[in-house]
Simulated scan of single mutants.
Amino acid sequence: MAKSVKLSQLVEELGLKIIEKSRDYEEIEISDKNINRPGLQLSGYMEGFPYKRIQIIGNVEYRYYMGMSPELRYERFRGLFTADIPCLMFSYDREVTRDILDLANYYNKTVLISELETTRLASKLNMYLEKHLAQEISIHAGLMEVYGAGVLIRGESSVGKSETALDLITKGHRLVSDDVVEIRRVDNQLVGTSPENIRHFMEIRGIGILDIRRLYGVGSVKTETNIDLIIHLENWKENVEYDRLGLEDAYENILGNEVPILTVPVKPGRNVAMIIEVAVRNLRQKNLGYNSAKYLTTRLFNDMNPDMKDMDYIEMYDNL
């Protein structure tokens, strides 16, 4: 089911002025995250009109329609209002002529005004709609920002997710969410946040509920972060052969995005928080083009083959 946001909510949160309100104003919902500046439609070309989008009259469109004769202006705006547009919006706090308002009233359309210039208004609308209409899921996990990277910490109950997150907090990293993470896809990037009612709180068995912001200060928490790495914690299993080289990268698909995932076995004596810090540093090196496991493998192979040329060595590294 497609997501939508109420027009009334958008108007309130962006501080827009209503100069003509449709009779069904409270029921109008917007499901298209794009906007449209109806210059072509004002010129009379209606084929392919994206009428489900918010329609913005910017400076250019305003000057164009103000130069029309009253009869032509009436006809062109009648074409706009007969379509099922969610609203018509004017930038630059423009004065809207009476004939436009009469048409909006007759065709039961909402007309809005913003004090912002067109570019800033379009930018704010895009950001707002992208946020509210993005694909979204909720998962059972914790989310930390470690060295600027968003790390999703998953695992079975009682494996130590919250304790690991708390250890990271004491090392200066920031908590985004404990236990439940809301993930949405914005501009092809996954963004994670916490449900508002549990934001900045953490449950530690044996202690109870902790308010991390009050205990460690505002620098210990963050509202949201991009998700760059998944750490899956599991209790150490003696019969499982865990990856010891890291030559092959594993990924998990979340909302269409491939996110690197590492499985970290947990057992007494292992400093999991430190391992996560190292994993983030190593991920950053990989993103910069350096893979230590591949480099070591080619180096060892080169030692066994002293006649190998430098270009062969580089090509072997790139192909691993």
Results as ranks from 00 to 15, higher is better:
Ala149Pro: 04
Val264Thr: 01
Leu42Arg: 06
Val272Asn: 01
Leu168Ile: 02
Ile227Arg: 02
Gly15Pro: 15
Ser114His: 03
Glu61Pro: 09
Glu238Ala: 00
Pro70Ala: 04
Glu234Arg: 02
Met304Phe: 00
Phe49Glu: 06
Arg78Leu: 10
Gly219His: 04
Pro260Arg: 00
Glu115Leu: 01
Lys171Trp: 00
Ser22Val: 15
Ile35Cys: 12
Arg284Gln: 09
Ile85Asn: 01
Leu283Gly: 06
Ile57Asn: 06
Gly155Leu: 13
Arg214Trp: 09
Ile35Arg: 10
Glu277Ser: 08
Ile207Met: 10
Glu20Gln: 15
Glu241Gly: 02
Arg244Gly: 05
Asp243Val: 01
Val5Ser: 15
Met202Trp: 13
Lys109His: 13
Arg120Asp: 10
Asn226Phe: 08
Met311Ala: 08
Arg205Lys: 07
Glu315Tyr: 05
Glu61Gly: 15
Leu190Pro: 03
His140Tyr: 15
Tyr251Ile: 03
His232Ala: 00
Pro38Gly: 14
Met46Ala: 06
Lys294Arg: 14
Leu88Phe: 07
Ile18His: 12
Glu13Ser: 15
Leu262Ala: 02
Leu245Val: 04
Val180Pro: 08
Ile137Arg: 01
Ser31Arg: 12
Asn302Cys: 07
Ile204Gln: 11
Gly206Glu: 09
Ile231Thr: 00
Thr110Phe: 02
Leu152Ala: 09
Arg98His: 11
Arg284Phe: 09
Tyr106Ser: 13
Gly148Phe: 03
Tyr242His: 01
Gly160Asn: 06
Thr170Lys: 04
His140Glu: 09
Asn287Gly: 10
Leu152Trp: 08
Ala250Trp: 03
Tyr295Leu: 08
Ile35Asp: 14
Val266Thr: 03
Ile113Ser: 04
Ile204Cys: 01
Pro50His: 08
Val221Gly: 02
Leu166Thr: 03
Met1Gln: 15
Arg299Val: 02
Thr223Trp: 03
Ile314Pro: 12
Asn59Thr: 10
Arg154Asn: 11
Arg185Val: 02
Met308Gln: 13
Arg299Tyr: 04
Ala279Ser: 11
Glu130Trp: 02
Leu133Asn: 06
Val151Ser: 00
Thr97Ser: 10
Ile153Pro: 15
Glu115Lys: 04
Thr223Glu: 03
Val60Gly: 14
Thr298Ser: 05
Asp307Arg: 06
Phe77Arg: 11
Glu27Lys: 14
Tyr64Val: 09
Asp307Phe: 03
Glu252Cys: 02
Tyr128Met: 07
Lys124His: 13
Ile183Arg: 01
Leu247Lys: 11
Glu47Lys: 09
Ile230Ser: 00
Asn188Ser: 09
Ala83Thr: 00
Asn59His: 11
Pro86Cys: 05
Tyr295Val: 08
Ile183Phe: 11
Gly39Asp: 11
Ile28Glu: 13
Ile19Arg: 15
Ser69Leu: 05
Glu182Ser: 06
Arg23Val: 08
Leu300Thr: 02
Lys52Glu: 12
Leu296Tyr: 04
Gly58Met: 12
Gly289Met: 11
Asp249His: 07
Tyr92Ser: 07
Ser292Gly: 10
Pro86His: 00
Phe201Tyr: 13
Leu103Thr: 09
Tyr128Trp: 04
